[in-house]
Design a protein around this nucleic acid. Sequence first.
DNA 1: CACACTCCCTAAACCGTTTCAGTCCAGTCA
DNA 2: TGACTGGACTGAAACGGTTTAGGGAGTGTG
Lengths: 342, 342
Amino acid sequence: MTTSRVTIKDVAARAGVSKGAVSLAFNHKPGLSEATRDRIFEAARELGWAPSTTARTLAGSRVDVVGLAICRPARLLGLEPFYMEFVSGVESVLIERSCSLLLRLVRSVEEEAGLLESWWRGRQVGGSILVDFRLDDPRVAAAERLGMPVVAVGHPSLTGSLTSVWTDDATAVTEAVRYLAALGHRRIARVGGAAALGHTATRTAAFDEAARALELAGAWQVTTDYSGESGARATRSLLTAAAPDRPTAIVYDNDIMAVAGLSVAAEMGLSVPADVSLLAWDDSQLCRLTRPTLSAMSHDVHGFGADVARTLFGVITGKGPGSHPVPTPVLTPRGSTAPPRV
Amino acid sequence: MTTSRVTIKDVAARAGVSKGAVSLAFNHKPGLSEATRDRIFEAARELGWAPSTTARTLAGSRVDVVGLAICRPARLLGLEPFYMEFVSGVESVLIERSCSLLLRLVRSVEEEAGLLESWWRGRQVGGSILVDFRLDDPRVAAAERLGMPVVAVGHPSLTGSLTSVWTDDATAVTEAVRYLAALGHRRIARVGGAAALGHTATRTAAFDEAARALELAGAWQVTTDYSGESGARATRSLLTAAAPDRPTAIVYDNDIMAVAGLSVAAEMGLSVPADVSLLAWDDSQLCRLTRPTLSAMSHDVHGFGADVARTLFGVITGKGPGSHPVPTPVLTPRGSTAPPRV
DNA sequence: CACACTCCCTAAACCGTTTCAGTCCAGTCA
DNA sequence: TGACTGGACTGAAACGGTTTAGGGAGTGTG
């Protein structure tokens, strides 16, 4: 049984002031004596009142909701530790601005572009976070046209004039390949993520370049859908070649596929790392739970999410477009990488 | 460059009707001729107008947002495939009602109870989904007091008068233990989840009861925080006992801990399933990626989320409280369970 | 003493919808 | 013909805040 909703008017009456005064107090704006201010807060506390964000939004002040749409098949989403960790990072900074996160799962970037427009026109969000950029992503044009504050998580080459936050995938891939080469590997493969994704293309190009620069004897790349099954299938196909033509090291684009690869190697009677070295990406707890433990290119996804959120607030408050690189993933060697058996 | 926002007034003007008429048309309410209706939609299409949800909410119609607060340490969240899959199930039904999900990570259920109140008072959400019930959970009283439409994901014994959706954990645990006993195991352990959680208590009680009923020679239970590290630690401690006193089968409360357990067994030179059988819970893709593959108590988390969302809509539209069991997890035997070595 | 200048605070307009009491009009019936 | 009915549509009042022009009181100045 709720008593009829308490509004700003009740608070004003109780404090013996006008609605406007209450509004000023709650927005920490000048023009009120300290005594009045206190009286207002006291009244609000007694009545258990907090301003209605809906009314506040309608009246034209800021919108304290930020949007995040994710476009991946539901089946794969659950398994990617990345997103939840990213979201928790985003939340950590939203919370201190008392903002909320509007989360939406979509089936295509086109749908997401439409969603963005309706969010923005309907003033449902004050800004949005865009992830998983494709080449020629329609969201870039949509956000630019709407003049909507967004932060694009992806390399500036993919995100047009939008403010972007990105990890240097090219350098990370290069470092991964160099590391394996330094261990003595000459035949290296990479099991990539979704081909449609921009950062997959970046990594693919960087891998090619690194392989060329190091004059590797063999370099393979395949793209997948990030699922464990795909990772297993890709690994199986890479490892069926006879020993001299087989890769001696495989780099994966996430850790799920690396775990799957580990399992396939065992199934094929190959020992890791003696017969084949495995290197994961997006280092989550999972990499420390396997036998052997998985070496990985690890980065701080939580902190990444926080950076993105902070950058979005910058854009919302009118900061011009910019490009914000975050620290490159660093190599964390564990038990799955070693020099190849001679 | 956005042109000044287009509102219902513009649409009304263009269609040559009043604002009220446009409202009627867009809410599919009677009182308008077919011709007028068409004219209105046409005008709206030309202007690219959609009603502002903010104004709509303020004007007192329904709120098309549902809340979900999750209370687990950020570090663990990322790894639990459960939540993202659950969320994707929830979304699948929200989408067809064109609703959105307001997601919030909180640090305690007390904080969540407060959040619930501010969400409800501020009309930010039309209802909420409550997960991870504790014993004597403060959210029950909060939701009851506010008269807020919520669905509680948890056993009715924990959720007071709230509408609940729940899996029959007791039966599932019993089935798991029976299965292992049927294979010939007489010494069985369980590595449970967080002790504070209601369903952990349910499972613990059911395990005790099953062990008693089957007159097992040994039964162990520990609670953890669901993390891989904890799972590993618990497993290590269970398996250090000398052979005759050691459990020959271990049941885990999620799959991350089971994976960790598998790795610990290998580290201790024990073979799975010959020396020890392992049974996971919350069957995700992960269980098929290990060597051996993990047997699990599996259930359809996506469908579960969808059920919960549908139930919430029922509550929002005034359906009285109820208790909705969903299918009990079923045993999916794979490579990690077998009769004990004699 | 008149004037300007501050400082607090109020009143009213406004945000973009929904809702509801009416108005208007064509049609039916006695 | 006049009374009544019902359908189509309008106008204005909410909804709960923010914003801003301006009013009144107090202080310093010439």
